[in-house]
Design a binder for these strands. Structure first.
Lengths: 183, 183
DNA sequence: ACGTTTTATGCAACTAGTTGCACAACGAGG
DNA sequence: CCTCGTTGTGCAACTAGTTGCATAAAACGT
């Protein structure tokens, strides 16, 4: 039940068309919620039908024409309601950790290369986040909005830091392991 | 595509019935992969049909009767193949971080209580993992299998540590914030 | 003026996970 | 003996997310 609310947040920050939203989901929103353009178009349709958003009147709505949306009061209210509502944390699901555990049973052949690849990817992501932090959150400005957004970015940075450390540690262990093979 | 492999791993560690698997998914396997009993029964059916596992012959297969499964060579081979195969990391999806970001737009009313609740839950989970670590991984034993399993548990511990720290930090920030309200 | 690429929107089918319920057997208590 | 709670298995319907493809307009080179 999060995607519509992610879209409402994004639209409140700035009214956008479906494709613009898709691009923003690949960037800032994307570091803790991702969505494909199909999901977004479908959801925009639903949100419009529910009266939470509406198409900006200015543009003509032909196919292949840009169509921008803005949030209506009902949409803002729904977002506020959802944000304040208590939600249980969902359990993690991490295929890599699962494979790690499986490798204790069927042997570690092949997984090491993928650990290295993941490490490289996480390092890249970390560097990107740190770049964003330097650019968007310089020491000076700190309105409440800035602080909250910075906090969210910090979560991203700290999570990527955790992964790079954990993977580094895992690879060190692999170095010491008597070479592989199933149990 | 991970659930069947999680089940194969669990069954290799110890042949079990559906309900036993469900219980184990609530415990050890569960800290990075969760599943309901319905998912598990459905998947056991598929795995049996594919010839990856089979029901232990000893027990009679009436409804309401325990039915245990063991992994066949084909199943072990499939698990080894999957474990070694390269997989891209899937992007995170975290509703709490999303709500944090939304609260920068619609105000922080109500979310603080839920942050406290999450903090308490993560502290609990952390304590539980540390308990398991003390019990299952005392300084002495370190076969390769132990090391790998310990590594996975460490990931769980470090992730919970991250969340408790991040939530603590977030709540501190809230204390300093000029009281709430939408943008 | 014409074909190719890019931008933009969208449908349909599929996969994975969740929720709600049903049903059978067994054990314990009145 | 017979109801009631527990254990164990399972179906059906629903929700969320993914993948593959279709379509239309505009932008651009030749």
């Amino acid at each position: 039940m999060s995607l519509p609310h992610a879209i409402l947040t994004a639209l409140l920050e700035k009214p956008s068309s479906g494709l613009e939203l898709t691009r923003r989901f690949d960037r800032s929103i994307g570091y803790f919620w991702s969505a494909t353009h199909q999901q977004i178009y479908r959801e925009l349709g639903k949100l419009e039908a529910e009266g939470h958003i509406r198409a900006l009147p200015s543009e003509q709505p032909a196919r292949g024409q840009k169509k921008s949306y803005e949030v209506l009061p009902a949409g803002r209210a729904e977002l506020a309601r959802w944000t304040a509502a208590s939600q249980d944390p969902k359990p993690h699901r991490d295929p890599l950790l699962l494979r790690m555990r499986a490798s204790a049973v069927v042997g570690t052949d092949g997984i090491e290369a993928d650990l290295r690849r993941h490490l490289a990817l996480h390092r890249e992501q970390l560097a990107e986040y740190e770049e964003i932090e330097k650019r968007d959150f310089p020491p000076g400005r700190d309105t409440p909005q800035d602080r909250l957004r910075h906090l969210v970015l910090r979560a991203g940075i700290d999570l990527e830091t955790f992964w790079t450390q954990w993977l580094t540690h895992a690879l060190e262990e692999f170095g010491e392991l008597p070479d592989t093979g199933p149990a």
